[in-house]
């Protein structure tokens, strides 16, 4: 897969913690390579769902680090439930993944 997303979703004491690592260059548009600016290329919207229902929507700018790590938590969620992650970047590229809560 060209744009993999690593996900770890675990539930304990009624709270599910989701951690993810997203493969993306997150080019800011301010960095030069061989004298030329690398054009901006970054994830703009990232959507997190639990059993298909949105739990969090993230809006990222170019200040989010390359290959971004992100984690958050929500109440509820049982072992075996599905957590979905989907993003779209400023060039319209997309990736999505779903994982089971452990």
């Amino acid at each position: 897969m060209a744009n993999p997303i690593l996900v770890r979703a675990q539930t304990a004491h009624g709270v599910t913690t989701v951690a993810c690592l997203v493969k993306h260059p997150m080019d800011s548009g301010f960095v030069k390579k061989a004298g030329k600016l690398i054009p901006p290329h970054y994830i703009e919207v990232i959507e997190f769902t639990h059993n298909g229902k949105t739990v969090l929507t993230g809006f990222w700018g170019p200040a989010v680090s390359r290959n971004p790590f992100f984690s958050f938590a929500f109440k509820g969620g049982k072992k075996g439930d599905t957590v979905g992650i989907a993003w779209v970047d400023n060039k319209g590229e997309r990736a999505a993944v779903s994982a089971k809560i452990a």
């Binding site: 690593l6 951690a19 690592l21 290959n67």
Partner: peptide, 13 residues
């Protein structure tokens, strides 16, 4: 904090 989900994960896979 970085090692919570280490950045070399993609490389290992």
């Amino acid at each position: 904090q970085i090692m919570e989900l280490p950045p070399y994960g993609f490389a290992v896979d």
